[in-house]
Design a protein around this nucleic acid. Structure first.
Length: 498
RNA sequence: GGUCCAGUAACUCAGUGGUAGAGUAUCUGCCUUUUAAGUAGAGAGUCGAUGGUUCGAGUCCAUCCUGGAUCACCA
């Protein structure tokens, strides 16, 4: 490629040869760690006065060599500490090893703890051992601490490089590594919360002969032995409901969904979804659960209840607002869609230049009005309820209004965070809903649901009344970690091939 | 897909038509208490790509690539 980097690589390889010539194994099998670095960080005086020999393994992240002595910083998963390496302590031969070390090498240092003349808590190295030689120099990042604040220089900040070479981002930007630690903790928190409510965790197929449970275009793949096309799931819903038919009463799945659609700040083609189903409860149960779960995660994992998200202050404290979609439209526009009068609603859409898709009825248009006039105004957590039946093919209709379903979406900062309903368990009604969707598909709606005969058959065996909930986990993590782009909370976001 | 912004050394960036630069990193010399930073020197770039305008293009124009923001589409 370019000559500069190849020159740097060549130099490192020459150094490697020299190491091997000196009889040093640059990639030994064994390493011996007696402590993690953060174990020394309390009771420093005790560690120093004990003169206890310790052994630390980690990556050299900085080197400051000065003639026959030098300093470095060694970092492991727990933290970072300075090492002090002096030839009159290590001996000449071992000091040669230190001289052959570079930033980026993994090393093991043995020694004792002390304070340097400058007062820095450090390991006085008796012996340094190379554990893994670095052949490709790491980008230079330096930092200093002023009044407890870390100032970084030449930070590895190029967004594209950070995503494409995520290992470097994690290595060089501890704040970005921390996001994924929090992500792990959030996942653990979700499991802990649901287990405390007697949910069991299940896994259902990603490769499916039919896709369903959401409005979305799927990815298609092919199974060679079966010689059949399969779809990557777009939702977990229909298989989880089969499990409730099968006698489980509380199930959840945390897994990847795949949707063959556009990508932006809040959409990645594969994303993580939590879906759960609970028999003998309804939408109100799901509302309580959603609010409790998110408050639990904020408190237990993050430790706060106010977040800056997409430039807005969001607080999850207090009781969350609940309002019906039609009431919200009325509140924001003065327009009353209660009567589902299609002529009136069509006129309203046309007046505001809202494009009406083929086959759209009053219900679909109401949802378009909501998206146009209300959605991004809902900053604080809001349960939007009473969705039109037309756009809710898996939700039970409201007993007092057949145009509406017992469904909510949770909106925060104008983004959808959760979707839940009292699940439709009437097999005949469900068939009619699927058939209405199939008509839309014929009219060209690529995201309409398909008729799933196997699922309908399962419903005919009987499914109890229940509440179901889906939460987009990546977006929830964006909120809780205060990241505005989904790419910041997914380790390897989708990118165009280089 | 539309619009806007960006792409120059490994990293962070400067360079508004006239010999491609800085700091860090790297390499070499000296150096036994440094901590973004000892010190002296050195090497390092197809300026995202292609075409054009011009005596002359990193710079101006066109097209394309990649990324970001935003709108559209979309949960």
């Amino acid at each position: 490629m370019d000559s500069n980097i190849s020159q740097l690589l060549k130099l490192r390889r020459e150094k490697l040869s020299k190491i091997i010539e000196n009889g040093i194994n640059p990639y030994p099998i064994n390493s011996q760690r007696s402590h993690y670095i953060n174990e020394f960080m309390t009771d420093k005086e005790t560690w120093i006065s004990s003169e206890k020999p310790i052994s630390v393994c980690g990556r050299l992240v900085a080197m400051r060599r000065q003639g026959k002595l030098g300093f470095g910083n060694i970092e492991d998963i727990s933290g970072k500490i300075q090492i002090y390496v002096a030839q009159n302590i290590t001996g000449e031969d071992n000091y040669e090893v230190f001289k052959l070390c570079d930033t980026g090498d993994f090393v093991q240092v043995e020694g004792t703890l002390f304070f340097t003349q400058a007062g820095e808590y450090s390991i006085k190295v008796a012996k340094i051992t190379l554990l893994s030689k670095n052949l490709r120099p790491l980008p230079a990042v330096k930092e200093k601490t002023v009044d407890g604040k870390v100032i970084r220089y030449d930070e590895f900040a190029d967004i594209e490089l950070r995503y494409r070479k995520r290992y470097l981002d994690l290595l060089l930007n501890p704040n970005h590594r921390q996001v994924f630690v929090l992500r792990s903790n959030i996942m653990k928190g979700i499991r802990k919360f649901l287990e405390s409510r007697d949910y069991i965790e299940v896994e259902t197929p990603i490769l499916q002969p039919l896709y369903g449970g959401a409005n979305a275009r799927p990815f298609t793949t092919h199974h060679n032995t079966l010689d059949t096309d399969l779809y990557l799931r777009i939702a977990l819903e229909l298989y989880l409901k089969r499990l409730i038919v099968g006698g489980f009463e509380r199930v959840f799945e945390l897994g990847k969904n795949f949707r063959n659609e556009g990508m932006d700040r809040t959409h990645n083609p594969e994303f993580t979804m939590l879906e759960l189903y609970e028999a003998f409860t309804d939408l109100n149960g799901m509302m309580e659960l959603t609010e409790s779960l998110i408050k639990f995660l904020a408190k237990e994992v993050i430790g706060k209840d106010t977040f800056t998200f997409q430039g807005k202050q969001v607080t999850i404290a207090g009781d969350w607002k609940k309002a019906s979609m039609i009431d919200l439209i009325k509140e924001h526009t003065g327009f009353d869609a209660t009567d589902f009068d299609i002529d009136k609603i069509t006129a309203m859409c046309k007046q505001h230049k809202i494009e009406i898709p083929k086959g759209a009825g009053a219900g679909k248009m109401i949802s378009l009005l909501f998206e146009t006039f209300v959605e991004d105004q809902l900053i604080q957590p809001t349960f939007v309820t009473d969705f039109p039946k037309e756009i809710s093919p898996l939700a039970k209709a409201k007993p007092d209004n057949p145009n509406l379903t017992d469904r909510f979406e949770l909106l925060i900062a104008g983004n959808e965070f959760a979707n839940a309903f009292s699940e439709l368990n009437d097999p005949l009604d469900q068939r009619a809903r699927f058939e209405a969707q199939a008509k839309l598909k014929e009219l060209g709606d690529e995201e309409a649901n398909v008729v799933d005969e196997d699922f309908l058959e399962a419903l005919e065996y009987g499914m109890p009344p229940m509440g179901g909930l889906g939460i987009g986990i990546d977006r929830l993590i964006m909120l809780l970690t205060e990241n505005d782009s989904i790419k910041e909370v997914i380790l390897f976001p989708q990118m165009k091939p280089e």
